[in-house]
């Protein structure tokens, strides 16, 4: 089952890469090199520039060559940044991964903590402040959140956390509130159990696998938000790189980022699904 899942993930990611490559190839502006506008260049130099891109004109040939290179660990060469893609990723990926980890963990833990407090407290109006806060965060585009944090002089990772928080809070609150109503919790309360014990042993624990499944969504949300956030905060991460690659029609760079992002999202989702499947029989 695990092998089949891995095969499926790889196949989807590679098809995603092919579609990304096709899109770049078909996009207007592909194949135009600003260097050709230089009047000092003679026709041979212009021809040499054109031949640099010749391999990218046939998308099938390009993708097969790309895959062959990928098997050897070669991600291709970024023409717009004039550097190997692997080198660019090596420099920028750690920064994005740290931001994503911070954003996902920060946003998820804040959302979960507020959801637990809201469900535990259960006094009338106790959820007003978190509900308004999450509502406003949901209603703000990630780019505006990035601007706010830029004004405050805080890093983009805080903005990612704020983009993740409302989704986790709303889902967790609804799930925990629904679990609080279930018969086993009512029975536990009827037997005299109160407070934190009911919350953690009878509400949080049964809901934990479904909460863990949120990890996949949180990572996907965080990466999506990281692009406008990194662009606006001028953070040299993979989000900003993807943006530059799309604007410059940089085929090898964009294909690599597409495959990487698809792989990352699919792997996190699959791990969450497998954890959920492994938990259920044990329960």
């Amino acid at each position: 089952m695990l092998l089949r899942q891995m095969r499926r993930i790889l196949l989807i990611a590679l098809i995603g890469g092919l579609l990304g490559a096709t899109l770049v190839r078909m996009g207007p502006g592909f194949g135009i090199d600003e260097r050709e506008m230089d009047n000092r260049l003679n026709s041979e130099s212009r021809q040499a520039i054109r031949s640099e891109r010749a391999t990218e004109n046939n998308i099938g040939v390009f993708y097969l060559r790309y895959l062959a290179g990928l098997a050897r660990g070669d991600f291709g060469f970024s023409r717009s940044l004039n550097r190997p893609v692997s080198q660019l990723l090596k420099e920028r990926l750690p920064l994005t991964l740290v931001s994503l980890a911070f954003g996902v963990l920060g946003g998820a833990s804040t959302g979960l903590l507020l959801a637990l407090l809201t469900v535990w407290w259960r006094a009338p109006g106790s959820d007003v402040v978190p509900a308004v806060l999450s509502g406003v965060c949901l209603a703000l585009p990630a780019a505006v959140i990035a601007l706010i944090f830029l004004w405050m002089g805080a890093g983009g990772r805080w903005a990612i956390a704020l983009a993740v928080f409302p989704h986790v809070y709303r889902y967790a609150k609804n799930l925990l509130a629904a679990t609080y109503q279930s018969p086993h919790v009512v029975a536990a309360q009827a037997k005299g159990l109160r407070g934190a014990r009911v919350l953690f042993a009878h509400v949080f624990t049964p809901a934990a696998p479904q909460l863990a499944a949120l990890a996949g969504i949180a990572v996907s949300l965080a990466f999506g938000a990281s692009i406008p956030i990194e662009v606006i905060c001028d953070t040299p991460g993979v989000g900003q790189l993807a943006w530059q690659a799309a604007l410059d029609r940089d085929l090898p760079l964009l294909v690599t980022i597409t495959v990487l992002v698809a792989l990352m999202t699919l792997v996190v989702n699959s791990v969450a699904d497998l954890a959920l499947a492994a938990w259920r029989p044990a329960r």
Binding site: A13, G16, G20, L23, A142, A225, I227, P228, T258, T265
Partner: peptide, 11 residues
């Protein structure tokens, strides 16, 4: 498999 904003902004 591709985050919504990534897909939208790239395309």
């Amino acid at each position: 498999s591709l985050p919504w904003l990534f897909l939208l902004l790239t395309v």
